[in-house]
C-alpha cells in the first residue's frame, strides 16, 4: 500500500521576530465550515454547546472552549477549529471539511495592530478589535479571516495556495514598520 506523507503550508515551528512583532506558524487542528440551514442557527448553537461547549458565534465574533474555537466567517457561516466536528452538527447545518484549505499564522507583540494597519482595511487596534472578535477581510489582495486570540495576538488565516504571499506581505510590513524611527 502506498504511503502518502502530509505537508503543511508553513514549515513546522516557523517563527520570525522583526521589530516588536513575532510571527509564528499556527497549527489549527481540524477546520470545519458550519453553515446552519434556514432557521437552524439556535439548534446548531445548542448542538455545538452539547458537543463542544461553545455557541455558534454572532457576526464578527469568536467563541471558544478549551481547544475548540468557532470563528464567524460570513453570512450563515463560521469555522469550527481545533476539534473534529460532532456528527450531530450535520442535522442542523452543512458541515464541510476545510482543514487543508487554510494556512494560519499568529502575530504577537506590541505593534501587531500597526503591522496589520498597513495591509488590512479594518481597525484592528485592541480597543476596536477586542478579545473574541473575528472578521473576514482583505490582507493585501487576499481574502483572510482575522481573530483576536490574545491581548497582544491576532490569528490570521489565509488560503493555503497563497501561504507564500501571505508570509511575504506580513514580513514586508513588519520590516517596513521596524525601519521607521521611534518616537
Amino acid at each position: 500500500m502506498v504511503e502518502l506523507t502530509a505537508s503543511a503550508p508553513f514549515d513546522a515551528g516557523m517563527e520570525r521576530t522583526i521589530g516588536a512583532v513575532t510571527l509564528r506558524a499556527a497549527e489549527t487542528g481540524p477546520v470545519t465550515a458550519l453553515m446552519p440551514y434556514a432557521g437552524q442557527e439556535r439548534a446548531l448553537s445548542a448542538a455545538l454547546e452539547r458537543a463542544h461547549g461553545l455557541e455558534f458565534p454572532a457576526a464578527g465574533r469568536m467563541t471558544s472552549a478549551g481547544q475548540a474555537r468557532c470563528l464567524w466567517s460570513g453570512l450563515d457561516q463560521a469555522m469550527l477549529i481545533g476539534v473534529e466536528p460532532d456528527p450531530a452538527l450535520a442535522d442542523h447545518a452543512a458541515v464541510v471539511a476545510q482543514s487543508d484549505g487554510w494556512a494560519a499564522l499568529t502575530l504577537t507583540g506590541d505593534a501587531v495592530a500597526d503591522v496589520l494597519a498597513r495591509l488590512v482595511p479594518v481597525d484592528l487596534r485592541p480597543a476596536a478589535f477586542e478579545q473574541g472578535a473575528s472578521i473576514r477581510s482583505e490582507l493585501g489582495h487576499m481574502m483572510v479571516i482575522l481573530a483576536r486570540t490574545g491581548p497582544q495576538q491576532v490569528t490570521v488565516m489565509g488560503f493555503r495556495s497563497m501561504a507564500g504571499t501571505l508570509l511575504h506581505e506580513l514580513e514586508n510590513a513588519m520590516t517596513a514598520l521596524a525601519a521607521r524611527p521611534k518616537g
Partner: peptide
C-alpha cells in the same frame, strides 16, 4: 441565493483549497 432564491434552503462554500 440571496437575491433571487432567498427561500431556498441551500448552503455552499468553496472547497478549491481543501482538495488537491
Amino acid at each position: 441565493q440571496q437575491g433571487l432564491c432567498p427561500d431556498m434552503d441551500v448552503r455552499f462554500v468553496s472547497v478549491t483549497e481543501q482538495w488537491a
